[in-house]
Nucleic acid binder design. Structure first.
Lengths: 159, 159
DNA sequence: GGTACATAATTGACATGTCAATCATTTGGT
DNA sequence: ACCAAATGATTGACATGTCAATTATGTACC
């Protein structure tokens, strides 16, 4: 050690108490919201948030099918996470996996009828929950601010 | 069905496309930030975010000990989650559990020396990560807005 | 055409989280 | 004092998530 670090320098490296308070508020609130939403989804539809994300992506995909790694990228999951989750969903009959014609390493994930049904039934309750837990809690200005904050964080993270 | 729902009515119940976009942005960004932070903590210190939350609370508690359910309430966990987690932390020597003198149903969680060490070593890297991933991504105005949004959501959720 | 490397996806081991059930103790009402 | 209900905490079963290793196939290049 060649000398002590002056306080000004430390302040540039580490968050202030106030910044830290906001961070904790931010992340804990988002996590609490996430679990509330997951609990409502679970109780109202027998789908988990993960199931819902997968089924939503497949519902919107052309032919209701998608390459496994595209799907992973689209919903932002690690491939191994998706693979495990698809295994569970396949056992429940929500999706099927088929070999890919153009690349025999690849797999295509296909929305199964039971998956489409489950998704359709879950949609309205899920959207209602988003409104009740998130949208209704914020003024229009706060909502817009939330969007800007998320966008800024996302840009920075993807940088 | 007695008739179709007029659009005005649906709009009051379900989020608009734009509101939904903001919701997804909000929750996915927070989750991505959470896992980035967890990954950095893990690689720089051998503590998980859960470990860190428990050790932080204990570090700040008088006598560095706390009743198990107080701890759960403080960090916002279900008791069973805490119980499982404490079991794992106890096996690693980070905390100890002692019987409570005033209530023999209860347990007290005590910060163990190894836990205090691990926490101390993890703190600086963790705070640095918070700054680099969160604080540095936002302007002062955005930071304040993030705080207000979190507060509003929290008030509404706790209502 | 064969070898090295990259890519797609799965697997196994294990950490983490949720839910419902359980157990022991305390508390409140009579 | 007694019993019923509430409380504190743990447990078991199982769903979910991460990491590193593995398998199989494609691609580049000499």
């Amino acid at each position: 050690m060649t000398g002590s670090t002056p306080p000004q320098r430390r302040k540039r490296q580490l968050p202030t108490t106030e910044e830290l308070r906001i961070w904790r508020d931010y992340i804990e609130t988002a996590e609490a919201l996430g679990s509330s939403l997951a609990a409502r989804l679970q109780s109202e539809s027998s789908l988990s948030r993960g199931d819902y994300a997968v089924l939503l992506a497949l519902s919107e995909a052309p032919e209701r099918r998608m390459r496994s790694s595209e799907l992973a990228a689209l919903i932002g999951w690690q491939r191994s996470r998706l693979s495990h989750h698809l295994g569970r969903m396949e056992r429940r009959g929500l999706i099927r996996r088929e070999e890919c014609v153009t690349d025999s390493r690849g797999a295509e994930v296909v929305l199964a009828p039971a998956g489409a049904d489950a998704f359709r039934e879950a949609t309205i309750p899920h959207l209602r929950a988003v409104r009740e837990l998130f949208v209704d809690a914020l003024t229009p200005g706060e909502l817009a601010a939330a969007g800007e904050v998320a966008a800024a964080l996302r840009r920075f993270l993807a940088r």
